[in-house]
Structures are given as C-alpha cells and as structure tokens.
Simulated assay, not measured.
Amino acid sequence: MKYGVNEQGYYGDFGGAYIPEMLYPNIEELRQQYRSIISDADFKAEYDLLLKDYVGRPSPLYLAKRLSERYGANIYLKREDLNHTGSHKINNAVGQILLAQRLGKKRVIAETGAGQHGVATATVCALKGIECVVYMGEIDMERQAPNVARMKMLGATVIPATSGSKTLKDATNEAMRDWINNPEDTHYIIGSVVGPYPYPEMVAQFQSIISRETKQQLLEHTGKDLPEYAIACVGGGSNAMGMFYNFLDDESVQLIAVEAAGKGVNSGFSAATSALGREGVLHGSRTILMQTDDGQVVEPYSISAGLDYPGIGPQHAHLHKIKRAKYVSITDEESLNAGLLLCQLEGIIPAIESAHALAYLEKMQFEPTDNVVICLSGRGDKDLSTYIKHFGF
C-alpha cells in the first residue's frame, strides 16, 4: 500500500513508538503478535460474525435526497450511527477485545472523549466478561453524562481525569499511566488511530471495513465503486481513516478531513491541529500536534468532546504533509447548524462530531454527477443537551 506503514512503524516521517521503558514489553508483544492473530481464520470468523450479528453490519449507505438537492450532488451517508452503541467505535472495540482474549489479558482499560469509545469498550467487555476501566476527562463526563451512565450500566468503572483541560488528552495520559503500572494483565484498547505503533495501523485496519463496505455499496447504487469525494470528521481520526483506507491508492478520490475549529482557528479556542500544529511527539508517536514554542501541548477546545484533541494520528499527519488528503476545519456554530439541518432535511440526528463533516458541504462546489460519501460516524443522542442549550429547544 503506497500510503501505508513501513516495517519500522512509520508513515513517511510520522509514527514509531516513543514509549517509556516499562511499556516496551507490552508494545513489543502486540507488535510481534497482532498481525498473526488478526489474520488467523478463527479470529476472522469470530470477528466477522460479531460484526454481522452483534454490531449489525453492514451499515447502510444512504442516498440523502433532500441534502443532495440542496448541494447539487449525490450525497451518500455511510450510516455508522446505526451500529450497536451508536458509532463507528464498536468496529475497533470488537477487534481489540478478541485480540486481548487471545493475548490472555484479564483486564481492559480505555480512554474516551465523547464517551462513544468508552461505551463500545464497556460493551465488548460485558460481552466477554472482562474487567473494564475507562478514563474520561471530568469536563467530558459532565457534557456526555448519558454515556457515563451507559458505561456504568455495562459494568465499567469510569475514572475522571482531573488534570490539565480535563478532556480527552488528559484521559489518555491517565490510561497510559495505568498501563505502565499494570503491564502484565492489562490490554489498553486505544480508540483512535493514535498512540505508539502498532496501534495506529491496527485501529485503521479494524475501521477499514467502513470504506470496504462503501465501495461495494456504491457499486450497487451507481455502477462504480469510487466516489469523487470522501469526507469525514477528524479528532484523532479513526472514522476518517476507516473511510479513507480503501480509497488511498485511488487518487481520483478526493479525501477531505474536517477538524474542529472551535470558536475560530485563531481564536485560542480551537482543535484545528493541521492548521495550528507542528511536528512533535504525542502519546507515543511522532505526529502533528498543537504545541507552544517550548514544546508544551496546547490545550485544545471544541464543543464536540470527540474532536477535542491536540493532535492527529500519524497516518493523517503523513497524508496532510504529502497532500494526499485535504485537512480543513469547521467552527462550533457551523457544525451545530449542519446537525440541525440534517435533522430537518433527512430526519437523522447526527453526533456533533459527524456534523462537522456535514458542515463542510457548505464550502464546496459540485458537479451534478458528483458522488460524495460522508461518514456519519455517530448518532446525536449523546449531544442532545448541547443542541438544546444552543438552539433553546
């Protein structure tokens, strides 16, 4: 794969495993075993069966007719919001819990921002009877309270991260700390295409089912399997990587990754990593991140808890640097308006994360024959209080 990872775990200049010595055995165990485990026939059979009968895949590819009329193109929504647990996160959680079982781990930890990855992890741990601890920023626990309740109902222990900005970055720091202290029996289910190698590649492979299904479904809908545009929101970037994965080598497909501009790219309240970031190391990999001149991580901001992250996955950093994908950003206001528009045109309430991708349609010009695929990465139930507060319902 032209844009894939090399033997050392790098995508061009980005990636690698920048980890404390205490974590070396865990990462090395994963690196040596994950490929053979996930390519094993029994693993594949169990994974595929769970995706079909438990998650509810394939998720539909839906031609949004009223949205299409508005923007003058064929707008297709890849309905990851219809998966069990309400987002794309379950695709990766199912794969990693099966991996953890085969590695003989007795305990699972995770970090979460919007709570969707936490819910997905708690769900698969309940399914397999494995202890689950989820770290979540204190601020995110307040703004995503329904997901906190779901995790607890599913038997997970939810531990608030009370340092820093009390959001996703800090939850990730706490999870890393836990893993350092419990290296033998614990598997860390990272929820995005971030972290030390092999995580970015492993998560991307589990999420690549999004674009694999999309190609097949687009062929059924239109007679051709390549769209003109594939669009997805990006925080760390797992739904986007899943949506881009099987289109990377087809350079006729324009890939558009939409980050959170927050209150404006230059407002000081933003998570637009590609616009504001520089190369450095974050959470175990070399990537692009928002940082001060002396290398301190800048606190990100977004109304969307799932996009409130100061970096992007290393493969995204590579695609951005070589310009294979276009990285853009959308403000809080624009995303909320796009979310409401989808509700009223199509009867679908999107997660605010996904609404960032929808909002970028306003800034594009299309030919009437263009096929545009947007990853609708999650449903908006978890964000109702934010929508209510903003629009005064």
Rank of each mutant, 00 (worst) to 15 (best):
K326V: 12
S87R: 03
K326F: 05
V258K: 07
L67M: 15
E46R: 14
Q96F: 08
E28N: 10
C125H: 08
A317S: 07
I189R: 01
E213C: 08
F393E: 08
T157H: 12
V234E: 01
F247C: 09
P183G: 06
Q207G: 02
G118W: 05
N173K: 12
L127N: 02
G313K: 03
S211N: 04
A41E: 14
D170S: 13
I209G: 04
D13W: 00
A275C: 04
G72H: 09
A175E: 03
E131Q: 15
Q344P: 04
I139C: 02
S304K: 00
L77D: 01
T331Y: 01
G339R: 03
G223V: 12
T162N: 14
G392L: 05
R31L: 04
D13E: 14
T214A: 15
Q216N: 11
L289G: 01
G339K: 00
G268Y: 10
K224G: 06
S385R: 11
I209Y: 05
S270M: 10
I37K: 02
G191E: 01
G277K: 00
A110F: 00
A171C: 09
Y54N: 06
L82G: 08
G195S: 01
D81Q: 08
S377K: 04
G262N: 12
E69S: 13
K89L: 06
I38T: 14
M153H: 04
V134K: 07
M136S: 12
S252A: 11
